Amino acid sequence: MTNALSLEGVHTHVGPYHILHGVDLHVPAGQVTMLLGRNGAGKTSTLRTVMGLWPASAGVLRFKGQAITAMTTPEIARLGIAYVPETMGIFSELTVRDHLVLGARAARRAEDLDRTRLDWLFGLFPALHKFWLHPAGKLSGGQKQMLAIARALIAPCELLLVDEPSKGLAPAMVMKLIEAFTELKRQRCTVLMVEQNLAMAKALGDRVAVMDNGRIVHTGAMAELADDEVLQQRLLGLSLGVAA
């Protein structure tokens, strides 16, 4: 099994705070790896460290075997790592079209966008086609999340980092996201996803890593964790069966 991303003994400090305590994490290529854990366990900090937003203070991060520990965020993005933050990072006054032009990086205008890839994204998220010229601030919460994901995917990427995509969304919108990520799975897109919606984690995850207090405390197949309620209670304090 080839790993797209590896973290080996990674520590992260933010000011006086020691956030990550020797994280060891491997994300297999072509699979969806779920990063689970209680609030404050270090999941978002892990994604931010991968992107170079918070530099690692110790340890090594590798993408496709290449050390990226000392790289800047733009350098990491240019390698093919895309990031959808928990806040989504949507600009209210910009249109859907504007956001995708920004995400494409090489495009200066909508006419420069790869039409085949744009049509593929419209297939995943039809609402973006419908509201193409609408200010993003007028979209619903779920539509904004779809826009944030589409912006990350408009330029081809080899690894997608997604932080709690279902947070605050209605169940019907969560189902639409599950359908979209299921299509990404079929295309063998490598995804590292932080998620609190355990039904979504169960539906999408191939692998799972569980964090606690800035460390990885469990790794394995998502299906095995989903079938073991005792392990779920010990690691997460709840049951996937109840969430599903």
Results as ranks from 00 to 15, higher is better:
residue 215 R to S: 15
residue 187 Q to H: 14
residue 91 F to T: 15
residue 126 P to H: 04
residue 120 W to Q: 14
residue 20 L to Q: 02
residue 49 T to L: 03
residue 143 Q to N: 10
residue 27 V to S: 12
residue 126 P to M: 00
residue 184 L to N: 04
residue 52 G to K: 00
residue 162 V to K: 08
residue 222 M to V: 05
residue 237 G to S: 10
residue 137 G to R: 05
residue 183 E to D: 06
residue 46 T to D: 04
residue 23 V to H: 08
residue 162 V to P: 08
residue 111 E to C: 10
residue 102 L to G: 13
residue 22 G to E: 04
residue 181 F to Q: 01
residue 32 V to R: 12
residue 54 W to M: 09
residue 3 N to M: 15
residue 91 F to H: 05
residue 137 G to S: 09
residue 182 T to Y: 07
residue 6 S to I: 00
residue 176 K to R: 12
residue 14 V to A: 15
residue 222 M to Y: 08
residue 129 H to W: 11
residue 88 M to D: 05
residue 115 R to L: 11
residue 98 D to C: 00
residue 83 Y to M: 03
residue 240 L to H: 14
residue 84 V to R: 04
residue 4 A to E: 07
residue 89 G to L: 07
residue 115 R to W: 12
residue 47 L to M: 07
residue 50 V to I: 15
residue 41 A to V: 00
residue 129 H to I: 04
residue 212 D to M: 03
residue 210 V to I: 11
residue 58 A to N: 07
residue 107 A to N: 10
residue 57 S to Q: 06
residue 163 D to H: 14
residue 89 G to H: 04
residue 176 K to G: 07
residue 11 H to K: 05
residue 127 A to S: 15
residue 117 R to H: 13
residue 135 P to L: 01
residue 206 D to P: 09
residue 208 V to K: 08
residue 92 S to H: 05
residue 237 G to T: 12
residue 202 K to G: 00
residue 224 E to L: 12
residue 22 G to Q: 05
residue 234 R to D: 11
residue 126 P to D: 10
residue 15 G to N: 08
residue 206 D to E: 07
residue 147 L to K: 06
residue 132 W to F: 02
residue 168 G to C: 10
residue 53 L to M: 13
residue 67 A to V: 15
residue 19 I to T: 06
residue 73 T to Y: 00
residue 106 A to R: 09
residue 36 L to P: 03
residue 21 H to D: 03
residue 130 K to R: 15
residue 87 T to R: 12
residue 173 M to T: 11
residue 69 T to H: 06
residue 243 A to Q: 14
residue 87 T to Q: 11
residue 47 L to A: 02
residue 185 K to L: 13
residue 154 I to E: 06
residue 140 S to R: 05
residue 67 A to F: 07
residue 92 S to M: 10
residue 119 D to G: 07
residue 170 A to S: 09
residue 211 M to Q: 09
residue 109 R to H: 12
residue 85 P to V: 09
residue 141 G to N: 15
residue 25 L to V: 01
residue 16 P to Q: 13
residue 203 A to C: 02
residue 20 L to C: 01
residue 187 Q to N: 07
residue 123 G to L: 06
residue 176 K to T: 14
residue 33 T to C: 13
residue 204 L to S: 01
residue 196 Q to Y: 08
residue 177 L to M: 05
residue 55 P to V: 00
residue 239 S to T: 02
residue 243 A to V: 01
residue 174 V to P: 03
residue 10 V to F: 03
residue 226 A to F: 00
residue 21 H to E: 02
residue 92 S to R: 08
residue 88 M to V: 09
residue 82 A to I: 00
residue 228 D to V: 10
residue 189 C to W: 13
residue 26 H to L: 04
residue 12 T to Y: 03
residue 82 A to L: 03
residue 159 L to W: 02
residue 55 P to R: 08
residue 26 H to D: 04
residue 179 E to V: 11
residue 196 Q to H: 10
residue 95 T to K: 10
residue 143 Q to H: 14
residue 224 E to Q: 15
residue 85 P to G: 05
residue 228 D to M: 09
residue 216 I to Q: 09
residue 143 Q to T: 03
residue 86 E to T: 11
residue 43 K to C: 01
residue 76 I to D: 01
residue 79 L to Q: 01
